[in-house]
């Protein structure tokens, strides 16, 4: 008998053609995609913790620019600081009529006594003012020291200067450089509209340090729009930038 040879050749093992392995890979892939969707939908533990953090807004209610700032507000009246009593008037003795020779010397004595009384009175007023100033707690917000107005807040110019100062930053290397003289200073003329928009600025006096001048320009560009409108238009006012002040602010003396 002749051995019958198969006409169709046998293929090899083809073990990997089993559908089971591909199906298992499909299940793994589906699982991976499901996990990814779950993470994107916010189900991931760290996701909620990050997204639930509420935003924080800082509003500066103390330094509101006003037209007519008061020097300090409010000035609490503390019980242990009595209101200074008005200085007692020194009794003026009745002038004794004297002879013409003695009249000139008496006038001089009276004038000297009056002068002394005025001095004492001025001194007492100063003491009273000092006691009053000490009676105000330090944490009480105050306006400008030289202001004499009625509105709570700071003056327009002081507000603008503070706003520009906040945006002013120097390289820490420059700030820490002891060779930089404390006299590095620049004056800038700025014009702000009533809605707090910087209209123009120009250097009235540039410092010799180019990096310092650049930092001022950057601060002015950052301060193009102030956070609050101004009570009045500021026309060509001078703002002084001083490196020493900047170092003091940074704690580098």
């Amino acid at each position: 008998m002749t051995a019958v040879r198969p006409f169709r050749p046998r293929s090899g093992f083809h073990a990997d053609q089993r559908a089971g392995r591909l199906f298992a890979a499909y299940l793994v892939s589906l699982l991976l995609h499901g996990l990814l969707l779950f993470a994107l939908a916010g189900g991931w533990p760290g996701h909620a913790a990050r997204s639930d953090k509420p935003p924080v807004y800082y509003v500066d209610l103390v330094h509101k620019p006003v037209l007519d700032p008061q020097a300090g507000r409010p000035e609490p009246r503390t019980p242990d600081t009595p209101v200074p009593a008005p200085p007692e008037k020194a009794p003026v003795r009745a002038a004794v009529p004297a002879g013409p020779a003695a009249a000139g010397s008496t006038d001089r004595r009276v004038a000297a006594a009056l002068e002394k009384l005025r001095d004492e009175r001025a001194l007492q007023e100063k003491f009273a003012a000092m006691r009053q100033a000490q009676a105000v707690p330090k944490e009480t917000p105050v306006g400008l020291s030289d202001a004499r107005g009625t509105e709570a807040g700071v003056g327009t110019l002081a507000y603008v200067q503070a706003a520009i100062q906040q945006n002013w930053a120097l390289s820490p290397y420059l700030l820490a450089d002891p060779r930089k003289a404390a006299g590095v200073e620049a004056w800038v003329r700025v014009t702000y509209s009533r809605n707090g928009r910087l209209e123009r600025f120009s250097f009235e006096m540039e410092s010799k340090d180019a990096q310092f001048n650049e930092s001022i320009k950057r601060a002015l560009v950052k301060s193009q729009q102030l956070p609050q409108p101004l009570p009045e238009r500021l026309e060509e006012v001078r703002v002084v930038f001083n490196l020493k002040a900047m170092k003091d602010l940074a704690g580098l003396r």
Binding site: L22, Y26, S29, L32
Partner: peptide, 12 residues
């Protein structure tokens, strides 16, 4: 999904 299934399968 199919791409990743094939990637896993062909890797093996």
């Amino acid at each position: 999904v199919t791409s990743w299934a094939i990637i896993i399968y062909k890797t093996l």
